[in-house]
């Protein structure tokens, strides 16, 4: 793909107006961050930045929202995104009262849904289910979380938020804090960051919740990283906090010991750079103290808000193209 071509200069601002290469999005699926190149990620973020509510854009289009597991933010933000572009939403949350409860297979369910809708958004507890659905139907499929595996639109909104506040996705020092072993958001984000240059990752976790070796292997040679159990947030541009879940510890005392070590308080935030941003995929429980919300670095509610433009852009791209 050629580099973007400079078309002209805005005579007032002097800003370069760049023609972006048009990528083919129409009819594609968004299943895993591993499927996306740097160019594709940047293209989605560009469209997310440009998109505005437009009740005509997807008028007459139907999004099937198939949430086999409950979700608050993801389901609502996809529905909001579709409705802001004039589309309609059908679907379910939880399988009670559906044919799935009667034993219908996932493949039969989505073959049926395909006859009613133009795009499927699916969350399902089985890992690989979204890929199976994408392989089964012709219409575009967006993975809204398949078990512990992937949640690519979360990663795209994380990147969108970082880009928004730092105006770049290269040359960043990023701290991932908390449960790095089981948290799918940090796995996806770490993989996405391999697409960018000069990324330094500081992996901050209890020893038993380190990033899995298979993910470290994907980073190896591309992203420089250090592992530590110390909550050292100095010099970081981005701090991405995840929740340490009690059920991951066989011994409750072990959990109590490490739990407090990774709580972000105003005192802890004193070591943050003024320009650092503090992110969290939410929901948080007690890993970020509520008083931190008032600090200028707290951007996790901006992050959750960014889910809407990112999902609006994806729906537009997959249904209409660039």
């Amino acid at each position: 793909m050629p580099n973007p071509r400079i078309l002209s200069y805005n005579s007032i601002s002097g800003v370069q107006i760049v023609q972006r290469p048009k990528l083919e999005w129409r009819g594609r699926d968004i299943i895993s961050i591993r499927d996306l190149s740097r160019e594709q990620i940047e293209d989605i973020l560009y469209h997310a930045q440009q998109i505005r509510p437009d009740p005509q854009l997807l008028q007459g289009r139907v999004m099937a929202s198939l949430f086999f597991e409950p979700s608050t933010r993801t389901q609502l933000s996809f529905a909001t995104a579709m409705q802001r572009l004039g589309g309609r939403v059908i679907g379910f949350s939880g399988t009670e009262g559906t044919s799935i409860a009667k034993g219908e297979s996932l493949q039969d369910t989505v073959r049926t849904v395909e006859k009613y809708a133009d795009v499927i958004v699916i969350r399902h507890p089985l890992e690989g289910s979204a890929r199976l659905v994408a392989d089964t139907v012709v219409i575009p499929v967006i993975n809204a979380g398949d078990g512990a595996n992937q949640h690519p639109t979360q990663t795209l909104m994380d990147l969108f938020t970082i880009k928004k506040f730092h105006n770049r996705l290269d040359d960043l020092k990023i701290g991932l804090v908390g449960d790095l072993k089981y948290g799918r958001t940090v796995h996806s984000l770490a993989i996405a960051l391999t697409r960018f240059r000069k990324i330094e990752l500081r992996l901050i976790s209890p020893p038993n919740l380190r990033l899995p070796a298979s993910i470290l292997q994907e980073l190896s040679g591309i992203v420089s990283y250090t592992e530590t159990d110390q909550l050292d947030l100095r010099d970081l541009d981005v701090v991405y906090v995840t929740r340490i879940q009690k059920e991951r510890f066989p011994d409750i005392e072990e959990y109590e010991k490490v739990k407090g070590a990774y709580v972000i308080t105003p005192k802890v935030c004193e070591m943050l750079k003024p320009t650092a941003i503090l992110l969290h995929p939410l929901p948080r429980v007690d890993e970020i103290a509520p008083e931190v919300d008032l600090l200028p670095q707290a951007k996790y509610f901006d992050q959750v808000q960014n889910g809407v433009p990112v999902r609006m852009a994806l729906l537009k791209l997959l249904l209409l193209g660039s």
Binding site: S105, Q107, L126, E127, G128, A148
Partner: peptide
Amino acid sequence: RCSNRNCVTNSSERV
């Protein structure tokens, strides 16, 4: 066979 017990290929789906 996938070693992940929660993989869709280890479920009742025909895959």
